[in-house]
Amino acid sequence: MPTDLDVRTARDLARPDVVTLEDVLAGDPTTYRVLTGDRPTGALHVGHLFGTLATRVALQRHGVETIVVLADYQVITDRDDPGDLPGAVREVVLDYLAAGLDPDATTIFTHSAVPAVHQLMLPFLSLVPVAELDRNPTVKAEQAASGRALSGLLLTYPVHQAADVLSVHGTLVPVGRDQLPHLELTRTVARRFNRRYGHVFDEPSALLSDAPLVLGTDGAKMSKSRGNAIELRADADATAAALRAARTDAERTITYEPERRPEVANLLLLGALASGRTPQDLAEEVGDGGAGALKRYVTDALVAHLAPLRARRAQLARDRHVVTEVLARGAERATAIADATLATVRVAMRQTA
Rank of each mutant, 00 (worst) to 15 (best):
Ala229Pro: 03
Glu284Ala: 12
Leu208Gly: 07
Ser275Gln: 06
Leu270Lys: 05
Thr299Pro: 06
Glu259Ile: 14
Ala234Thr: 13
Tyr297Asp: 06
Leu267Arg: 07
Glu257Leu: 14
Leu269Gln: 13
Asn228Gln: 04
Gln280Asp: 12
Arg312Thr: 13
Gly271Asn: 01
Ile230Met: 10
Ile254Pro: 06
Ala265Trp: 03
Gly290Ser: 02
Val214Ile: 14
Asp218Glu: 02
Arg244Ile: 05
Gly271Phe: 01
Ala236Trp: 02
Val214Ser: 03
Arg312Asn: 14
Ala311Gln: 15
Ala241Leu: 08
Arg260His: 09
Ala250Trp: 10
Ala307Val: 08
Glu259Asp: 13
Asp210Trp: 12
Ala291Ser: 15
Ala301Lys: 11
Leu208Trp: 10
Ala304Asp: 15
Thr278Pro: 05
Asp218Asn: 10
Ala314Gly: 12
Ala245Glu: 10
Pro279Gly: 00
Gly287Trp: 04
Arg312Gly: 11
Pro308Trp: 12
Ala220Cys: 09
Ala272Cys: 03
Glu257Trp: 12
Leu267Ala: 04
Ala242Pro: 06
Ala307Glu: 15
Glu231Phe: 14
Ala240Pro: 01
Leu208Ala: 02
Leu273Asp: 05
Val303Leu: 07
Ala307Ile: 14
Pro279Cys: 00
Gly292Asp: 15
Glu285Pro: 10
Arg296Pro: 02
Tyr256Ile: 11
Glu284Thr: 12
Ile254Arg: 10
Asp210Tyr: 11
Arg312Pro: 10
Gly287Glu: 13
Glu284Phe: 09
Pro258Thr: 12
Gln280Glu: 15
Tyr297Gly: 04
Glu257Pro: 08
Leu309Phe: 13
Ala229Lys: 04
Val214Gly: 04
Arg296Lys: 09
Thr239Gln: 12
Val303Asn: 12
Gly219Asp: 09
Gly216Cys: 02
Glu231Thr: 14
Glu284Gly: 14
Ala234Lys: 06
Ala274Phe: 07
Asp235Leu: 09
Pro262Gly: 12
Lys224Met: 01
Glu284Val: 15
Ala238Met: 13
Tyr256Lys: 03
Val264His: 09
Ala283Ile: 11
Glu259Cys: 09
Asp300Leu: 10
Ala293His: 07
Asn228Cys: 03
Ile230His: 03
Arg244Ser: 11
Ala291Asp: 10
Val303Pro: 04
Ile254Ser: 02
His305Cys: 14
Gly227Lys: 08
Asp235Gly: 13
Leu282His: 01
Gly290Ala: 03
Asn228Asp: 00
Lys295Pro: 09
Glu284Leu: 12
Thr299Val: 09
Arg313Ile: 12
Leu213Asp: 08
Pro308Cys: 09
Lys221Leu: 08
Gly216Tyr: 03
Ala265Tyr: 00
Ala265Gln: 07
Ala250Asp: 03
Leu268Asn: 00
Leu306Arg: 05
Leu208Ser: 09
Ala317Gly: 04
Pro258Gly: 04
Val214Asn: 08
Arg312Tyr: 09
Met222Thr: 02
Gln315Pro: 13
Ala283Pro: 08
Ala301Ser: 05
Pro262Gln: 07
Leu243Cys: 00
Ala304Tyr: 11
Leu213Cys: 00
Val286Tyr: 00
Ala246Thr: 01
Arg261Trp: 06
Ala274Asp: 08
Glu231Tyr: 13
Gln315Thr: 15
Leu243Gln: 04
